[in-house]
Write a protein that binds this DNA or RNA. Structure first.
Lengths: 221, 221
DNA sequence: CATAGAAAGATTGGATCCAATATACAATCT
DNA sequence: AGATTGTATATTGGATCCAATCTTTCTATG
């Protein structure tokens, strides 16, 4: 018998589907911050009842992507500049450490994959895809750290600020710098220089954070 | 008009109450790992319907305190020794950094509060209370870092391993060492020595982790 | 006796219904 | 007119009901 068996136990529930769709929409900035999320409205969009929607909203709230008030409903969470700064600082700490732990475990295959993502990020001209490719590049390296708990936290913290990071890439012409920095990080990884990869990752994130907050301070007044 | 107004908006919903109760029970080890959590059963215990229970369970799952399988239900999550080691390593990284950031902001009042928690931890003989006092001591210092996002992560990661930490304190006579280490950390804070407080906190957590994993390896075979 | 398969019971996921609360707006009073 | 109260509507939180799935038990059969 030849077929791609999938684990039925993890088939997506309605709540899973709604959650993933909303998460993606918020991360990619398709839902503006402050926008109301009406249970009924969303339920109709997905051809389901409000129950799975409520579960999805509950999960989003736990991850800080929306805020809810009793009897008032959910709105897409916005972050103050201070909060954004804090999350970038946090990411710099964690992701630098993750890279340090990853370098000794990098094999030829993983490095080749990372190189491909890096090149794709260099070539890609469609700004809408930068966020995703950027994520793929970093994750392909992070995986080698073999630290599922760290990675879960990294993912959650990246989710919170991904919208802003995408804005930073497109609106402040941060791509050019990101491209250079990615190459430098990849180089350090290929040279098995954990300390250098760690320091470069840290600076990469802090640079992006600084550039973003400068931009936001101008924009928000 | 003279009355103590409370903000009605943050009155607890049924789901909040169930969530907090289950969280506490899991953290404190009153619910054994692997134990089934039947929606109906819990609903009856709290005199409510299954809907708020389901929301509470969903939140617990997001925080990793339980695992659920579709149509099968929820069980209290257990951690492998490797997972426990990873979380301790992670905590050492974060909490050390938090203390470093906190020290410059420590005022007389905060230090006095921390000193009281420290003394309480020294005096307390009831092992059931060590976990909570330990938490209070560390948190009273961490607050001064003024990093809400970091603290949220710290809380979540501590929640995951609190059961085991409590076991470590009582079963491996880790209290004596914890008491010494707390005093050393407090001393460093009072001396405004951020680097020393940082290093001591790091060692404090790694020590506890090592002691715990040794114990668990014996116990679990 | 062991085992495959069917039937029954238990449990979860989702839909629908009801109650509690918030918001918007009209009515009333000064 | 402006402020205040009452009312209608919209929306959420929770209860109840139904369908899908899992688990257990029972039975027939070799």
């Amino acid at each position: 018998m030849k077929l791609d068996a999938v684990d039925v136990r993890q088939a997506a529930s309605a709540a899973d589907i709604v959650y993933e769709a909303l998460r993606k929409a918020i991360i990619e900035g398709d839902l503006a911050e402050g926008e109301n999320l009406r249970q009924d409205h969303i339920a109709q969009m997905f051809n389901t009842s409000r129950i799975p929607v409520r579960e999805a909203l509950s999960r989003l709230e736990q991850h800080g992507l929306i805020t809810t008030e009793r009897y008032k409903g959910a709105v897409v969470a916005g972050l103050s500049i201070e909060e954004i700064e804090e999350i970038f600082e946090f990411r710099a700490l964690i992701e630098a450490e993750v890279i340090r732990l990853a370098v000794p475990n990098l094999d030829r295959r993983t490095l080749e994959l990372a190189r491909q993502h890096c090149e794709e990020f260099e070539r890609e001209e469609n700004a809408d895809r930068w966020g995703e490719i950027n994520r793929n590049f970093h994750y392909s390296l992070y995986e080698a750290a073999r630290r599922p708990y760290y990675l879960q936290i990294v993912r959650a913290s990246l989710d919170r600020i991904d919208r802003y990071l995408r804005a930073q890439l497109t609106l402040t012409s941060g791509v050019a710098r990101a491209r250079r920095e990615h190459k430098a990080i990849l180089d350090a990884c290929m040279a098995r220089d954990a300390e250098r990869a760690c320091a470069l990752t840290r600076d990469h994130i802090l640079d992006a954070g600084r550039s973003l907050t400068i931009f936001l301070r101008e924009q928000r007044g």
